[in-house]
Design a protein around this nucleic acid. Structure first.
Lengths: 346, 346
DNA sequence: GTGAAAGCGCTAACAC
DNA sequence: GTGTTAGCGCTTTCAC
């Protein structure tokens, strides 16, 4: 690009063709590295391209090719560090595969999801990665009809590929960790930003461990999106009541951190009075002040698998039934859990 | 959409025209709400559209219109909660203005930025919002030549509109707060994820306050992107040395939180031994365990202004020199700052 | 090895 | 009011 073009309109393939004194098909062939072109022609075309600072119009190309290189990403809440980290990784791997990323934030609201999906599909995106799926039927219809490959990352649906951590195992090892520390009254607290199926699986792991230990289960749900209140009961009761719990497995780190905040406010000491285990291992979890024991999901690996899987689908290298790839997860023990301290009420 | 199309290829405007027994221009007119169409014709066309589940091909439309409704967003690090929150807000307002969002994450690396920018520009995006700008000349050339309106949000360049908090004031009030608490040895610690110009402005506010108080300044920089080490000196020396500081103004919350972590590790108590002020007011800052005194940027308002400004530029409603919109910011005092405790070395 | 020509699906004059 | 037509910038046969 020695001579930057001063024209207001970008150069087209025709401009290049004229300058190189060839036809536009030849220019097209050069751009696309077609074989069987005279070296000197290539050189002339390349020179013209550089001189004009020519860049192919992706819109025109994709119109004729009937496909784009845009990946749509549907995220529930980008402000949640787990999702922003995942989104970042997706963009990174997408770039490596030559894809551009378009995203929409849904707040897990069906209407917003539907509108966002329509916007993405109108763009004839090549593939769709869901980091959250509100479970709307209309969304499913829309996407399946459009024939765009869909992949559910850390969430689930039966109409697309799935890449997910072993939620059930995660829930189980988190609970077992608390059990091994001697805890008996252990609750599961669900955060609304965790997608339903994942929540169910984590919960099921929790239940299995509890049942195996012959203990009763207790499941609570955070109310609303920002509030620090529970549905149907109060956090005070759960943490301070007569039959208060001594261990909590939270369905994600954000919920666990919220819980730590509540505990601090109520004077409940962690881990002395209360042990807390999270899920995700977000960046904050490792801060000394949070120091959260949590289930680690291999975020980078999951993003990599997700992108390469959807890329294979797009290219048609991968066909047939929906793939369900479950990646292993492990527990990282930090300071939010400790052996149960025998107390008068213990 | 009563009869979902079973065909693998989406319906085109021609399919609709045939079904409604009109020409494709008439369909086009209906889609675009052109006036002067017979009501019954509109009805027939609408019915056909519904029956086929027709959706206009955005690519084709934008190719002929020579413009897209895609907004490009350049973000330095989406994993930084400040940027993910901003990105989320941008997408929200963009949607309200009818724009789709494409983004790229640059890690503030010039080469990645350049590649990402090229990808966005190849898509003939309508406008570009920078949440981080590596300051690369080549990037500037690329964008200005492409004639795509650029807007710098919480960062600065002289070749586009700017929407930014009053960084200088923020730095000043943060420092004044520490001064009012009686602190004298106050350092400024810069985090690399804060863009240069913003960093300079915040630093300048700090300097001004210090100079006015007749005190010497001390500026440090975190080393690398993740590390907890400083350039040219050690955090141990800053926090524990003979001439250790009692107050720190960090150029952003993430740096401040990192500092809290260091302090905890070194046994330096906050706020008893050390007062810390951040910048951004990210969600975590309000957690009891962090409880960070910080400068609040009106994130939502800035995103709104940014999107509506770039929308005006795109539509041509706004022309002429680059706008520079500075929004006010304030201090929110939490528990990470306290009056200087007189000690033997004070 | 290179070029001519036919679209991709749509918009926007301009006829009728 | 509605239809005809000429592109937007590119890819991709298929002749030469």
């Amino acid at each position: 690009m020695k001579g930057p073009s001063e024209s207001v309109k970008p150069a087209t393939i025709l401009d290049v063709a004229r300058l190189a004194k060839v036809s536009k098909s030849t220019v097209s062939n050069v751009i696309r590295d077609a074989k069987g072109i005279a070296p000197q022609t290539i050189a002339r075309v390349r020179a013209a391209i550089d001189e004009l600072g020519y860049r192919p119009n992706v819109l025109a190309r994709q119109l004729v090719q009937q496909r784009t290189n845009v990946l749509g990403v549907v995220v529930g809440d980008l402000a949640n560090p787990f999702f922003s980290e995942m989104t970042k990784q997706i963009e990174r791997y997408a770039g490596q595969h030559g894809y551009q990323v378009m995203f929409c934030n849904t707040q897990i609201d069906e209407h917003i999801e539907l509108a966002g999906l329509r916007g993405l599909l109108d763009y004839r995106i090549a593939g769709l990665i869901f980091l959250a799926y509100a479970g709307d039927e209309e969304s499913a219809r829309l996407v399946t009809e459009s024939r765009v490959p869909a992949l559910f990352l850390t969430c689930t649906a039966d109409w697309g590929d799935v890449v997910s951590p072993d939620d059930e195992k995660g829930g189980r090892i988190a609970t077992e960790h608390l059990l091994e520390l001697g805890h008996r009254r252990i609750a599961y607290i669900a955060d609304p930003s965790v997608e339903d199926a994942a929540d169910q699986a984590r919960q099921s792991g929790y239940r299995r461990a509890m049942v195996k230990a012959g203990l009763p289960t207790a499941v609570y749900h955070w109310q609303g999106s920002e509030g620090k209140t529970l549905k149907e009961t109060t956090i005070e009761k759960v943490l301070l009541g007569d039959d208060r719990v001594t261990g909590v497995f939270s369905s994600n780190d954000l919920g666990a951190i919220e819980l730590l905040d509540c505990a601090d406010r109520l004077g409940v000491r962690v881990p002395q009075d209360l042990s807390v285990v999270g899920f995700d291992d977000v960046m904050l979890a490792s801060l000394r002040r949070i120091n959260l024991t949590t289930v680690v999901q291999p975020k980078e690996m999951m993003a990599r698998i997700a992108v390469s899987t959807i890329a294979s689908r797009i290219k048609g290298e991968l066909t047939g039934g929906h793939l369900r790839q479950i990646v292993d997860c492990g527990l990282i023990v930090r300071g939010s859990t400790a052996p149960l301290k025998k107390s008068k009420s213990g």
